[in-house]
Amino acid sequence: MQERTALPPQFDRPIMLGGLLAGAVATPLLVVLVALRVVGLISSPEVVFWMAFGVVLAGALGTVMLSNIVHAALALVFTLLGIAAIYLLLGQEFLALAQVLVYGGGVTILIVFGLMLTNATEDPIVSDGAQKPFAFGVGILLALVFAVALLGHHWPAVGPAVISGAEFGERLFGEYTLAILTVGVLLDIALSGALLIARPDSPEESAE
């Protein structure tokens, strides 16, 4: 029986702290949302939306702010899954599914592999560059500009159209056959290229 190795302490505490923090923030919010629903101020989809909203943004902030890269990757997964929920709210079954599969599965795993291969945890944990303050300013300004642009416009008050997976599939492989095939070829080429780039040049190199 193999002896179980304990997690290194630098993994332990932040996770527990993060979990506690998330719970402390999320629980009152959840309570408020449920209360609002019970009172009848917001509808059920809206409750779901605001929950997903919170998860997506919290995950995004975690992705860009956590200093531990593995934690950041974990936060990214939360964001991507939250976005899948948003897709469902927008009535897109298939896209939500694709989001979970491709992002929640494939991309995340790729990234974690990348982290492993580059020994990222061994790097000195200074994960942010010197221009962080500038980046912060730019991000705030950009958010303001977009918010003004998007919300300043008067959008028609209609609901989202629900498109089922079957309908999506029919149209995708009917009208857009050529496009989907082209994307397939593109993916193929891109991944072959990735392989070519990442492959070691010489036996000595691969031996390292």
């Binding site: 500038f134 980046a135 730019v138």
Partner: peptide, 26 residues
């Protein structure tokens, strides 16, 4: 030679262009 610096420059450009586009759209 640092990519983030170049990215910042690009970002500032995008920002300025967005603000122009915003002003022009209204």
């Amino acid at each position: 030679g640092r990519i983030p610096n170049y990215a910042l420059g690009m970002a500032l450009g995008v920002l300025v262009l967005s603000i122009f586009a915003l002003g022009g759209g209204e």
